[in-house]
Simulated scan of single mutants.
Amino acid sequence: MKAIVFIDLFQSLLMFIAAFSVIVVAAIHADGLGDIWHEAECGGRIDFLNFDPDPTTRHTWWALIIGGTVTN
């Protein structure tokens, strides 16, 4: 049991470090997180309150809530 907990902890740390390093490298190349956020806004990628009922639209509020509930 100790080995399983240790390996799970190690794997979690590796995933966190990998995600954090991707963010840091992207921020360095883009001259900061603000530039990344601005580019995402200009590209129409930042839309938190999309209540479109169209099932073919990706990442709407309804799809995330219903899909997350079914998945859970």
Rank of each mutant, 00 (worst) to 15 (best):
N72H: 14
I17Q: 02
G34F: 10
L33M: 03
H38E: 07
G68Y: 04
V22G: 00
A26Q: 12
A63Q: 14
I66N: 14
V25Q: 02
W62Y: 15
N72C: 12
L9I: 10
L13P: 04
D54V: 09
H59T: 08
W61G: 05
G34N: 07
D35H: 08
I4R: 03
C42I: 10
V24W: 08
H38I: 05
F6M: 14
P55G: 00
H38K: 10
A30S: 06
I65Y: 12
G34P: 04
H38Q: 11
V22E: 01
D54C: 10
A19I: 09
N72E: 09
E39F: 02
V24L: 09
A26P: 05
I28K: 06
A63H: 14
F48E: 04
I28A: 03
W37K: 03
I66K: 15
F10H: 05
D8Y: 00
G44C: 09
V24M: 11
W37T: 09
V22M: 03
L49K: 15
I7K: 09
T71A: 13
L49Q: 14
P53E: 05
H59Y: 12
I65E: 14
E41T: 02
V5H: 13
R45M: 12
D47S: 08
I36L: 03
H29N: 06
F51E: 01
D8V: 01
P53K: 05
R45N: 12
A30H: 06
A3F: 06
V24T: 03
I7S: 10
G68L: 02
L13E: 00
T71D: 12
F20S: 00
W61M: 09
E41G: 06
V22A: 06
T57V: 13
P55D: 00
D52K: 01
G43A: 14
I65G: 06
A3T: 08
